[in-house]
Every structure is written in structure tokens, then in C-alpha cells.
Design a protein around this nucleic acid. Structure first.
Lengths: 124, 124
DNA sequence: AACACACTTGAACAATTACTCATATGTTTT
DNA sequence: AAAACATATGAGTAATTGTTCAAGTGTGTT
């Protein structure tokens, strides 16, 4: 079912502000970069995943440890770990029956910190 | 319809790793803080909103300018601006018929930058 | 080999979400 | 006052998502 794409009607102020719009358009990053950025933040946009990442920043943990820590089922945690792994945020290591997860890189905490700065600013 | 809450069964390795789990639990931030953090990142987790924020980081713009820039309807942009405003990320200023939007604070770019660092690391 | 354990995975379902469309509000122009 | 313009908003809808449940895989133990 192809969606009808109607061209967006320009309004008067677009014409007036044309210079600004063109300048901004030039400076915008590639469409794909912005999409990837949104995809990354989408991964951070769930409190379960935030908790998992925060926990793994403290210590490598196995799936059932995380499940117990967050009081959730192993299945739910496993699903979320999959999302985090696909996003390149965590890695896993098998030791017999047990699979240990840990953070893939150190940027995670820095992204959190920037978010926390905003939150604390806002509550002033 | 009350959902049946069954306590999460502890597995053997929880008992073994009890120390680690307890240590991590102590260090975890408040439940509410982690929830707020997820809510903030959820706002960044959409490419339309990312584009709007990026555009506003370049220049104050009115709704129809943004709509034209992103080739989307004014209504769609207006809805997203509302989300961004509620998250405390943008502010608005009326000048006659026209409403100009701009970034509320300077952290936005820093959060973007941290995200971009992760993306560029990943593609190595 | 049979079983138990730690984990993964696919389907199903409820909840959320981004957009569209129609309509409403607020401002300026005629 | 009426019309035009810029924006906001509410309802509706298709798509996405987080969890549960049931069944599967891989590893160690008996």
C-alpha cells in the first residue's frame, strides 16, 4: 500500500527565512548519521536497559544475576541483552553453563553522565 | 486486571555471586533517576526529533521553516516540538503569527557528541 | 544416556508511539 | 468583521516495542 506523498507546501515565512534554512541544511550531518544516532539513543531509552548497563558498569555479571538484581525474568533480561549486544554496547563470554556480560566500551558512562547533567539542570 | 506477580526464582549462580550482586545493588542510583534518564534518552531516540534538535543547534527557527527543512508537515513537527518542550530541550518565543523555537540548554550538543563517538568507534 | 541448569529464541499480546487528517486557537491583514 | 496565516491539538491508525509464555540450545552432572 504505497503512501501518497504530497509535497510540503511552503509558507510565506519559509521564503523570508530561506537563507537561514539553506544555511542550516548545509550544516546538517548525513541523513544516515542522524538515523544511527537516533537508533543508539533508542537503546538507551528504556529503563530496564539503562539499569542493565549501569549494573554492568559496576561489574561483569551473568544473566541470572542481572535478573535477580532487577527482579525480572531471565527471559526478559536475555531479550534486552540481545538488543544491547546488537547495538555494540555489551559483550558476552561463556564459562561453562554461565554466560557473563560486560560493557563493550567506556563511552556508556559518559553518555549517562551527560544525560544526568541535563536532568539535574532541569530540576533546578 | 491485576497482573500476577510471581517472585523471581533465584538460581544457583545467584547464591554464588551474591556478594557481587549486593555490591552492585548498593551502587545503583535511585530507581527514579534511572527512569528519568531513560525518559530523556527516549526523546533522543527518534530521528525526526534528532534532526529538529540538530537544526535548532544551528539556528533559531520557526515551525514552518523546520517543516520545510525536513520535508514534513507542520502538524508532525508541531507534535514533536511539544515532546521536546515537555522534555525541557527546547523553548519557544512568539513574534506575531510566528513561533520561534530554540534550544533550551547547551547540553544537547554534548549528548549528541558522546553518541557520535560511540557510533564512530563501532564502525571501525 | 538422562537429567538439570543457564541461557536463548519465537510467537503472542498489551502498551506505546509517530504520523495524518480535521479542526481549533491566536495573530495580522483587509 | 471577515479572511488569511502560523501554529496547536485531539482522534484515529499503522507500526513498533517490552514482556510473558512455551519450547529450544548448549553445557555439566549423575
Amino acid at each position: 500500500m504505497a503512501k501518497k506523498i504530497q509535497p510540503i507546501e511552503r509558507c510565506d515565512c519559509d521564503v523570508i527565512h530561506e537563507e537561514i534554512v539553506n544555511k542550516v541544511r548545509e550544516k546538517m550531518p548525513q541523513e544516515e548519521t542522524l538515523y544511527d544516532l537516533a537508533e543508539l539513543f533508542k537503546v538507551f531509552g528504556d529503563s530496564t536497559r539503562i539499569k542493565i548497563l549501569w549494573a554492568l558498569d559496576e561489574s561483569e555479571m551473568c544473566v541470572c544475576d542481572i535478573a535477580f538484581l532487577l527482579n525480572m525474568t531471565q527471559s526478559a533480561i536475555s531479550h534486552q541483552l540481545r538488543v544491547l549486544k546488537q547495538a555494540g554496547l555489551v559483550k558476552s563470554r561463556r564459562e561453562g553453563k554461565i554466560v557473563f556480560y560486560s560493557l563493550e566500551d567506556e563511552h556508556v558512562k559518559q553518555i549517562f553522565d551527560q544525560g544526568l547533567i541535563h536532568i539535574s539542570e532541569e530540576s533546578k
